[in-house]
Design a protein around this nucleic acid. Structure first.
Lengths: 235, 235
DNA sequence: TAGTGGTCTAGACCACATC
DNA sequence: ATGTGGTCTAGACCACTAC
């Protein structure tokens, strides 16, 4: 009854088995489980292998591990979900549509207070402001409102963003060290509605992202997805 | 200039240094980096330690690793973000507010087609349907519309959800093996608006989640957050 | 077919927190 | 004080795949 596709490594096999014992309630929430040495004997592997398996489950949030106290099944497992930060072009092409984009505005402007604060840069710093619509099969898919800090991304002033997707250019040329990312929902304003070809007031999924490298904030962007868009994560 | 807080382990130190080389463009997108053996010599550690560091960066999406082909800096790094699946009570209490909840509806009902399909259960299967409002300082924070499958969570019929927060009870008693999770935005309908004390049409962030264990789908829930709510992730 | 990463082992030492 | 996990090492064998 417990047979499934076998994970390909010993560590994964052990992780799967331990997960099963937890899900099947052989080991209950709060229980202390056998220590690494004991499990190593039980499974006939080295302790390092058990350690790898249990660290995996601890990362998933299923186990709490502490030196000396041992390993316990998490009582209130606030588990984690991961999602891949989407690249519009790939998203659209993966859906079998033809990708295109149009830059509807590009200007060098002083950063407004809100953006400057979010990026940790002085208010009024000169930045590139871009508004881009991304299309799938000529239907608006995503609206991008981006500020780029030339001091953290030298050379960016010379880029032709009609040819180069701004996100792809940045990510390829200026990898980031640290980022922040938030989801929210907003009612479409007049401009959102016009560019996304929908009605004002429609609920839009908003993804707000800011990234930094050694030199400071690279870029801060607000992505508004077309109505009905759904972003899936993998817990 | 590159001095930062030192990571506490050799593997993390190496990961940090390799990340720095990528961010500082010593190693460019698409470049092949030295193999594990070479880096082990350079850093004066065992190959296993380098392996651990590089696997970490590969998980982050910064490196592509293939046997025989070596390790390359990812060309178009679609990096990952993780967020902790929130537990309402903790969220509210962490914000310094007083948590409370009210079950506004609880019934055993046949699963409607959409829910059954999402859960992979037969249409019309008897399930518990719950509607709960979660409050922070008596202000509506989150609206929960949940279906629970008693066949995957035996004993659930007897639980008093006025006393036990449904999510906490389930998560403590029936850990899940597999889950699905999606974000979207919806305009508040009449009921959403009434329960969240807002206006109809307001944009709401929606989190839709379904979880499974060995016995089948445990629960499927739609969480609607109060207007303006923002969910933060850690890339 | 040979070079690369993936994984495992046996052993070791250490840090930490509980007992 | 002592038992637990955290980490590292040196060595080994294997799987994959680019050459």
């Amino acid at each position: 009854m417990t047979d499934r596709l076998l994970p390909s490594s010993k560590a994964l096999t052990i992780a799967t088995e331990v997960r099963r014992r937890i899900v099947d309630r052989e080991w209950r929430q709060g229980d202390r489980i056998p220590d690494e040495a004991a499990l190593a004997v039980e499974f006939g592997v080295a302790r390092a292998t058990v350690n790898k398996a249990l660290q995996l489950l601890a990362d998933e949030g299923l186990l709490d591990r502490k030196r000396r106290a041992g390993t316990h099944v998490t009582i209130n497992p606030a588990r984690k979900a991961t999602f891949t930060i989407p690249i519009v072009r790939e998203q659209i092409e993966a859906a079998g549509m033809v990708y295109s984009h149009r830059v509807v505005a590009q200007k060098i402007r002083p950063a407004p207070a809100e953006i400057a604060a979010r990026m940790g840069e002085p208010e009024g710093a000169a930045m590139i402001h871009l508004r881009t619509v991304h299309f799938g099969d000529a239907k608006p898919f995503q609206l991008e409102d981006r500020w780029i800090n030339p001091r953290a991304a030298p050379g960016v002033e010379a880029v032709d963003f009609q040819r180069n997707n701004p996100n792809e250019w940045l990510v390829r040329n200026y990898p980031w060290l640290r980022g922040q990312l938030a989801f929210s929902a907003e009612n479409a304003d007049a401009r959102d509605a016009r560019l996304l070809e929908t009605r004002q007031g429609t609920a839009l999924l908003i993804l707000q992202r800011t990234t930094w490298n050694d030199l400071g904030a690279i870029t801060s962007v607000r992505l508004a997805f077309h109505p009905g868009y759904c972003m899936v994560a993998i817990p």
